[in-house]
Design a protein around this nucleic acid. Structure first.
Lengths: 198, 198, 198, 198
DNA sequence: CATGAATGAGAATTCATTCAT
DNA sequence: TATGAATGAATTCTCATTCAT
């Protein structure tokens, strides 16, 4: 912990506070206290609260995408690949709920346009990242020819909604149960194929 | 417009401003201006900004649920019922994006606990509302025996995620396209049944 | 209780609230509630909060002076008279601590000059009232030829100080003890005549 | 004046304004103006108006007690000691009437409980301080065996009442006259020993 | 590079007072 | 006479940002 650079200490503290309190409720004073630096040092490294926030989100999401990418570097059959994508996403979402919660919940919280754009970019990178995986599956014939971008957004929406509930409400569903439900819905849908004739 | 009660005028203005700016960025001054009442009148009717916010969300969600309920009072076959649930939800979600956006995005924005609880209650009512519909479908054999609560949460998550994107990003997807994608995913999933053998 | 006039109901409620909260902490809303009249009625009867406050104090002090006067209408020897004055004052002070506390504590609380003058007048009437009694005693040779006005002010100061402490701090001194101490101090002083040679 | 610390400048300005206007009528804006600091600086140094008020009173009373203590560090006979206590108290009371007035008059003005307790403590310290002096006199046989705490309270009450009157009313009594009257009353009482036989 | 005291624009909230009914 | 919804001026307190050291 002692050998973190000041920037890293600040980013770590900011992540903690922003995710606990949200953008507007987080105070620069508290971030400085937690990071054990003077308030001026925050401004020395990041020109404004907005910039610090954007840095926090970008940093966190990049780490998540890198981790998922690494985990997907394998020759698994697509279906296993797909399941792995889901379980990795969920696991990382819950692990980093601090970051993901921010970028889900704070988009409308009055950030300045420049910062907002920065954060939307990183969100879109995540959607593109998922879109690519879906595209591969579709090209190989595993997935229906649905709009990939919408599908990716839907997929992320499911994950966010369930994980958010898990985080906010302390629902009593296990992570396994959540993964299985999401996988079931996304793979073959809610409808019972035996009963429903197409 | 002139024959709205003052409470209604306030609620209408508050809905507009809260959804445009989010909770913390919305200013009581501006709400008062838009409602064309004095700032004191806001406080005469709602004891605090938080209470006004909660009233706004509760009011909006109740209207949405009432509308969906009414639209579902029919003898359609379940599948049509299900499709109607989706399209109604989506249509209303987009129509009332002002309200839905706030209740999705502001849960972590530092509301006082009491108000937070009030808003979570109305969200849970919506989840319960969807859960009930899914339960019916399941009892009649149309839906797989998945956990209904998780399924309902997932369903709402998909809707929120796609609609939020639609609202925030002005994606170029039509409402029809969104409805079809959601319906496809939720009914038979993403996987291609021809290729994937179970 | 039902056959009080509205003015009386208001005065009673105002006395209660002013004495419990002080002038600035007392709210017209609360006084109206306690009096069970509409807020407008307060203003119909008293043109401002200050005026209502002055009416409250004046009314209360007049009642106290009338009562003491009546109790002193007797042919007791002066010393008994003096003791009676003290015990009556203390008893009434404690009984009406609601009123007396106000006029002691609120003189500097930012009342408008006109109202302030009105309240000072009634305080001075009380001092004059006591001054008169002291004058009688002095004329008859019972009291030392001290400045009567200063003596009266001192006497009232002792009573106020001890009674205030009694009211505020719930000191564990009985009313008897307080009366005896005051009487002792005021009659023959603190000094021990045996030891001190004049 | 220029080499006062900012805290001292604030305390000085606060003392002035609080005593002129009382707690509720004093405005933080005005205190900041008088102290020639920004309003935020007030809050940077004292977390609330109440805290600033308490600091003002505590600071002032401590200075008064220190001064009296120093003046009483002498080998005077008790009677002179006693007279010195009175004259010092009165002189300081009048000199610091700014402070003493507030702590006498604002106890019921709706301060928050914590602050109220803080101020009552310092008042009790002053009573204890006087009680100690009376105790010494009593042990040495100079004073009657009256309850010391009540006596001290009475003594302070006399001083406060007369000085308050002096300050508020600009009575035309000289300080000498006030000291002599108080000394006379407290030493041998109001009663004329020649006439009254015990 | 780092600090933290100082700043002041900005916001929520209060409440005496008014006035249409 | 009586009412109470409506008002808006006034005030406390917050907190991102700056800058002298």
């Amino acid at each position: 912990m002692q050998n973190l650079t000041k920037q890293q200490k600040i980013l770590k503290a900011a992540t903690k506070i922003f995710s606990e309190k949200g953008f507007h409720q987080a105070k620069m004073d508290e971030i400085a206290n937690v990071a054990k630096v003077a308030k001026g040092t925050l401004y020395y490294n990041y020109s404004s609260k907005s910039k610090l926030f954007a840095a926090t989100v970008t940093d966190g999401m990049k780490k998540i995408m890198q981790t998922i990418s690494k985990e997907l570097e394998s020759d698994l059959p697509f279906l296993d690949h797909f399941r792995l994508l889901l379980s990795s996403s969920i696991r990382l979402y819950l692990k980093h709920s601090e970051v993901t919660k921010i970028y889900v919940n704070e988009l409308s919280s009055g950030l300045d346009p420049e910062t907002l754009t920065e954060i939307k970019q990183i969100r879109n990178q995540f959607i593109d990242f998922v879109t690519n995986i879906l595209q591969t599956g579709q090209e190989r014939g595993y997935l229906k020819p649905l709009n990939q971008h919408l599908s990716a957004t839907a997929l992320i929406g499911i994950i966010e909604s369930l994980c958010n509930n898990q985080v906010n409400e302390t629902d009593d569903h296990s992570m396994e149960e959540i993964i299985e439900t999401i996988f079931a819905i996304l793979s073959t849908g809610l409808l019972n194929p035996v009963k429903v004739q197409f």
